[in-house]
Amino acid sequence: MSEQLPDAGPPAEVLELAGVTVRAGGRVIFSDVSLRVRPGEFVAVLGPNGVGKSTLLKAVLGLLPIADGRIRVLGAEPGRHNSRIGYLPQRRAFDPATRIRGVDVVRMGWDGDRWGVALPGRLGGRAGRQARDRVHEVIALVGAEGYATRPIGQLSGGEQQRLLIAQALIRRPDLLVLDEPLDSLDVTNQAAVSALVQTVCRSHGVAVLLVAHDVNPILPYLDQVIYLAHGGAVMGPPEQVITSDTLSMLYGTAVDVLRDRTGRLVVVGQPDSHAEHRS
């Protein structure tokens, strides 16, 4: 945080990618991806497995070098302002034997990266009380009060996901980076978590970059989508991008986008789409 930011408030763009190419192990993961995310925008990264959706997020976080192009995150190089980004990696559940409470996991998001130990109870002084207040606040925000003090390994997938979103939110980030947060959740929980992310995005003005392989639970909330394919990407409002013409052009093969009676979108003929349904 040594870099002084101009006092003129947040920059116009939270995130800006221009012509970004990423290589790993001698293979081009994706190339020439451009993207702009403004404050308070809800953006989904879509595409079949293996096109580098998670890789894109890692590049945004500065965890992976880019081969070409330019990334600006909160007006600086990637990795510079990661404490102002809430990150939820793609993951499996916590091991049932993990004997750490949910509140402790949330608290790690607050000061888990600082050296030394947190002083217990009143010894922590004002900073300690502030941290505890914020932990409670953010747990209330995600609606996890009922189970936050139970060992996290014993919670359900949806409960764990809420607590991890609380952890990502605790530092009042300007950007939320969520990697498949709806994966491995049942339909009810998918809807609930999507609505929660939407609330955070709208009422707190946090920009959201969310990776998903099923667009339907978040479709009503999206401002923009970026659709990745091997080699390229298309970005724009969902109704413009998720169409038969755009996707067929992107993949170079016939792809149909169908809409069922309830308004759900189904993408048919998309390469690798069969492999998407993981257990």
Partner: peptide, 15 residues
């Protein structure tokens, strides 16, 4: 048997 042969998130050192 909980936790055996799995390497999930967090510690699996209890067993």
């Amino acid at each position: 048997a909980a936790g055996r042969l799995t390497a999930g998130l967090g510690g699996y050192g209890d067993e």
